[in-house]
Each structure stands twice: as C-alpha cells, then as structure tokens.
C-alpha cells in the first residue's frame, strides 16, 4: 500500500497558462527527471444544430471523483517508472478555448511518459464522475458525453 493521501484535484474555473508554467518551473530542481509530458484538455467550440458551444460548466461527484483520481494515480505509479505526477481538473464555468484538464507526468526516461500520460488521461475520461453542461451562445444547453 502507498502512503500517498487522497488529494483534491479540482480547481475553480479555467486552468491558466501561468499556473501550468509555474508547475513546470517547480520541477526544475528535481534533477533526476529527464522527461516531462503534459496533457491539456481544452474546451472545444463544438457546433450542434448550428449552435456553437461557448462554455462548459463542470460539476462532479467530488468525493468519488477525488478517490478515482487517486486510484488512477496509484495505478500509474504501479505500472510506470514515474518520478512525479500531477492532475488538475476544473469545476464551474470554463469558456471555449480555455483549459479544463491538466495532467503532468515526469520520469527519468522519455518512453515511460508517453505511455503513462495516455493511460492516465484515458482512465480519467472513463472512470471519474465529472459532468459537463455545454452552454451554447443562445444560453440553451446540452450535456456532454465522453466518447
């Protein structure tokens, strides 16, 4: 068993480029790392029946979601030789073009991080109870479903 605690992955609103940049800077003192890989999920301005998505409002069953994020994290550390890993997901309103998911994996070697990042992102999409209300420009909405 790992002694890592269940962390809160959620942040209110969009994840800023500055926040992501600061995360990269924080890792520059970890000299055993040789490769980072970053996934940024961005809200897409989908067009449905001639209406364009202007934002997604995220909600989550937060307690279960944080537990699932933790399990995915533990599985990734078990499966891959990772030095560290960070996940942040938005709650609330995120406009089209803004970032709603930030996954950051680091390892001594590059091959590991390509596989690890894909594993983590796909697991998040499939297993974490996060819900997205796609809001159109005319203020109507539909509910997003991961495909």
């Amino acid at each position: 068993m790992s002694d890592r605690e269940i962390k809160n992955v959620f942040v209110q609103g969009a994840i800023s480029a500055e926040f992501i940049a600061r995360s990269i800077v924080k890792h520059q003192s970890k000299n055993q790392i040789g490769a980072h890989n970053i996934f940024l999920g961005q809200v897409r301005a989908d067009v449905v029946d001639e209406k364009t998505v202007k934002a997604i409002e995220y909600t989550a069953y937060q307690e279960m979601a944080n537990r699932k994020f933790h399990e995915i994290r533990e599985a990734a550390f078990e499966k891959f030789d990772l030095t560290c890993m960070h996940i942040y997901h938005s709650l609330g309103l995120v406009k089209a073009g803004e970032i709603c998911l930030f996954v950051f994996v680091s390892s001594p070697r590059r091959k590991t991080i390509f596989e690890a990042l894909e594993f983590v992102v796909e697991e998040i999409k499939a297993k974490v109870p996060v819900f997205g209300k796609e809001i159109f420009e005319d203020s109507t909405h539909q509910w997003k479903v991961n495909t």
Binding site: V121, V128, W143
Partner: peptide, 10 residues
C-alpha cells in the same frame, strides 16, 4: 445512493 449520468471529464 448516487445516480451518475455519463462521464464528461476532461
């Protein structure tokens, strides 16, 4: 008991 619609994370 919690009812969860399809997931849409990311």
């Amino acid at each position: 008991i919690v009812l969860l619609p399809p997931f849409a994370g990311g």
